[in-house]
């Protein structure tokens, strides 16, 4: 069977600076795929190319048997990819429930049904008790959860998570790991995540890809990748694990 997401040789430059060069990878359905690398390695740019925020200079993005290269973000969402933003982007004047309802309206025609579905997503992310707060009043970890809940509410097949664990305490990180594992097991969700929190990456990912200076330098099982000499010198600094 063809992989659910297949990225082939995508590249992107900004004013002559190469942010991502010729990166290829594939993600199978129901897989959890981690992307790691130092700051500025091009991880978020890669996400933005998949999610339609930037059009790649070269290369292709295939999803679910379709070429979605250069689709607008809303069309990528229609195709079945949800995303979160590294810098959280809540709808500040809306309540938490209304924020997630905007996402849920993608999957439900009726507002009432969407609100119910949104409430379910919030419960799943353990944000149910905050549903009537204005998004602008949430703490940063809660805003990260809100990002996930909102993307999840659109009913995606695949979700792109950009550093959703950053700023969480270790116990909260573990909760998020459990939640994401449940989503994969119960809803059959495929997850691609950018993450700096190594314990989460190690615990969650089936496979890990390492980016450095916009290039892929390693890919494989997490245990294998962290022992890769190229990864050790360039990223983990030899002593991280």
């Amino acid at each position: 069977m063809a992989p659910l997401l297949q990225v082939e040789g995508v590249a992107k430059s900004f004013r002559g600076l190469r942010a991502v060069s010729d990166v290829s990878f594939a993600v199978e359905a129901k897989e959890i795929f981690g992307i790691i690398g130092p700051n500025g390695a091009g991880k978020t740019t890669l996400f933005n190319m998949i999610a339609g925020a930037f059009r790649p200079d070269r290369g292709q993005v295939q999803f679910d048997g379709r070429d979605i290269t250069g689709f607008r973000p809303d069309k990528v969402c229609d195709a079945g990819i949800g995303r979160t933003f590294q810098i959280v982007q809540p709808f500040a004047e809306l309540t938490v429930l209304e924020n997630v309802t905007v996402g849920a309206l993608h999957a439900h025609r009726e507002v009432a049904a969407a609100r119910l579905a949104a409430a379910d997503c919030l419960d799943l992310l353990e944000l149910g008790h905050r549903r009537h707060m204005h998004a602008s009043n949430l703490t940063l970890p809660d805003r990260k959860r809100l990002e996930v809940a909102r993307a999840l509410a659109t009913g995606p097949k695949l979700i792109l998570l950009d550093e959703v664990m950053a700023g969480l305490r270790p116990t909260e990180t573990d909760r998020m790991v459990v939640i994401l594992q449940r989503l994969r097991a119960e809803a059959g969700l495929t997850i691609v995540l950018i993450e700096h929190v190594m314990r989460a990456v190690m615990a969650l990912s089936d496979r890990v890809m390492v980016l450095h200076h916009g290039e892929k330098i390693a890919e494989g099982k997490p245990e294998a990748v962290v022992r890769d000499p190229a990864v050790l010198t360039s990223y983990l600094g030899g002593a991280a694990v």
């Binding site: 809303d74 969402c77 949800g82 709808f91 209304e98 996402g103 993608h106 909102r150 993307a151």
Partner: peptide
Amino acid sequence: RAIRDNPAAAQALGV
């Protein structure tokens, strides 16, 4: 209202 508060985020949610 979503577009008013944050057009990029709204678009990512399929709007």
